[in-house]
Structures are given as C-alpha cells and as structure tokens.
Design a protein around this nucleic acid. Structure first.
Lengths: 154, 154
DNA sequence: GATGAAACTCTGGTTTC
DNA sequence: GAAACCAGAGTTTCATC
C-alpha cells in the first residue's frame, strides 16, 4: 500500500469502469502494472467490490432517515436478535455502535413514509429495543461513500 | 425504468465490473440489450458513476463520526459559508438537512482522532454554527451504499 | 445477432532494490 | 533473489450496424 496504490484507489472510486489504460495514464503506470495492482488491492481487501453508484431518488427510494436506538437494560439475546433483523433488512443501509446517550445509529432508506413508518414500528417493538429517536433528511447537500485519500495516509 | 432495469441496477451495485454477458445472464437479456439499458440508465441519471468500494480501515481511515450541527440564530450568509466549507472538505462524506432539534447531520471519516478533532474544532468555530454534538462509531455492523431495490418500486 | 475495434489476461523478459 | 514493471500475443468483450 504505497502512494501509487492510493492514487489508483482515489481514481477508481470515481472511474470504476475506466480502462486500465486510462487508469495507468492517470497514475503513471503501464496497463499490465495497473492490472496487477488492482488484483492485489482486491485480494488484500482494500477494494471490496465494484459497484454502480445509483441515485436513490431516480429509482424511487427518496426517503432517508437516521434512527438512534437505545438497548440499555435489554437482555443480550434480545439485542442480538435486533441486530440480526437489522442485518437482514436491506432498507437499513448502516448500523453503527456509537458512543453517547444512544446505543446504535441506523441509516435507513425507503420508498415512502409509509414503509419507513412500518420499519420503525417494527424496530421500536423489538424486545431488545428500549427507546428510539428518528430524524428525517429534508435534503442532502452531499452524500458519498468515496473514502478520502490524500497522497499521505497510512 | 421497469422491473428489468431494477434488476440490472440491483446487480451492478454489487458486480460493477462484471461483463455484460454475466449481467445479461443474471437478468435474462442479450449482451446488446444490457449495453443499451446501461447506457440509458447512465444518461437518465439512475447510475451516477462507476466505483470501487474501498474499505476505509484497509486504507488508514478508521475513524467514523456523526456530528449534529445547530445553525439556529446564525446569519444566512454564515450558514452558506459553513455549507460551502463542508462541501469542499472530503472528510465530510455526507451532509443532510434534518428535522428535529438539530439543523444538519454530518458523516465524517478521518485518519485519526487528532484529525477529527481538528476538523470538529473548525466546524464549531465557524460563524454559522451555534452548537455541535458528535458521536463516535465504535464498530459498524453494516455500512453500505447499495440502494435497496425489490422487484416492485416506482 | 454479426462484425470490426477495443480492452483484458497471461507469459516472458527487464529493471531495481 | 525477490518484487515490480513493461511489452507483446492471444482471447474476450464491447459498440455499431
């Protein structure tokens, strides 16, 4: 993982289907070298998978919410059941164990307020869940999953 | 935007560099048809760009934080300046205007607690910012940007 | 679908540390 | 000596018809 690897990663996060020739031109490498580096970045886990960035609004998933969940006082088994349900539900994009007053922070993307309500009702009623609080996103100034990669870094 | 388009989108969010033949086999289309559909999905904005999903921990960006920002009472110009600074800073992955007690919710990814502290100090000191509150992610059960796409949807 | 053009994979050889 | 890079041939894949 050197500076060239980071340049490649920075590039392919925005140009994931560009040819190896283009990537090579951008980072100063031959086609073969780009091929080898990318293969290595994939096997070492730096590149998890290749993806198309889909606009949620263009495909009918305009509702975005962040839900804080408290599990204090719940049985460990119940919390595990809640987390498994979260893992299986693909409307829940993110689930983080967080510091502070709350236990978990969920990022949720749905088709409508109705489906959000149904999902939140299910979460609030789960045995492992003590309390919830939801904030709705009215608009998004930016929303990316591109990992910042300057020339330095570890 | 029909059911096949949604199947294509669901597929390419996880297999973004697969060949058109593989995509076609998965959704029941010829190579040419996949080619045409993808081109259309790109021009209509459903596919924003192609990307490699990079593991933040594998590239030295392990710190993840969510910061709530209050701008109540601030001058409109100052809030705009804050938002522009946010837009330019690529450590801020997301910025949403949200309902509830806070004005904005920021998702921040940094290399270290030190760089997070520096970033948060800057935000808290901005003229447009009245108050902030930050929660640190201790661990992440899931973190994806894959938009959920069932067979239905709009 | 078929065809020309482009891109990818793999091998072998060279350089560098 | 090992690791990384480059170049070329053969194969696959893509874009246009």
């Amino acid at each position: 993982m050197d500076a060239i690897d980071r340049k490649i990663l920075a590039y392919v996060q925005k140009g994931g289907r560009d040819s190896y020739a283009e990537i090579g031109a951008a980072v100063g490498l031959s086609i073969s070298a780009v091929n080898e580096r990318l293969k290595k970045l994939h096997t070492c886990g730096a590149i998890q998978f290749w993806s198309a960035a889909v606009d949620p609004r263009a495909v009918g998933r305009p509702i975005l919410a962040y839900t804080q969940v408290l599990t204090a006082g719940a049985r460990s088994d119940d919390v595990d059941a809640f987390l498994n349900a979260v893992r299986r539900n693909d409307a829940v994009l993110e689930c983080h164990h967080v510091t502070g007053r709350w236990s978990y922070l969920l990022k949720i993307r749905t088709e409508s307020l109705e489906s959000l309500e149904a999902l939140l009702s299910g979460i609030a009623a789960a045995p492992g869940v003590t309390q919830t609080h939801t904030e709705l996103a009215l608009s998004s100034l930016k929303e990316t999953s591109v990992v910042p990669l300057a020339a330095d870094g570890t």
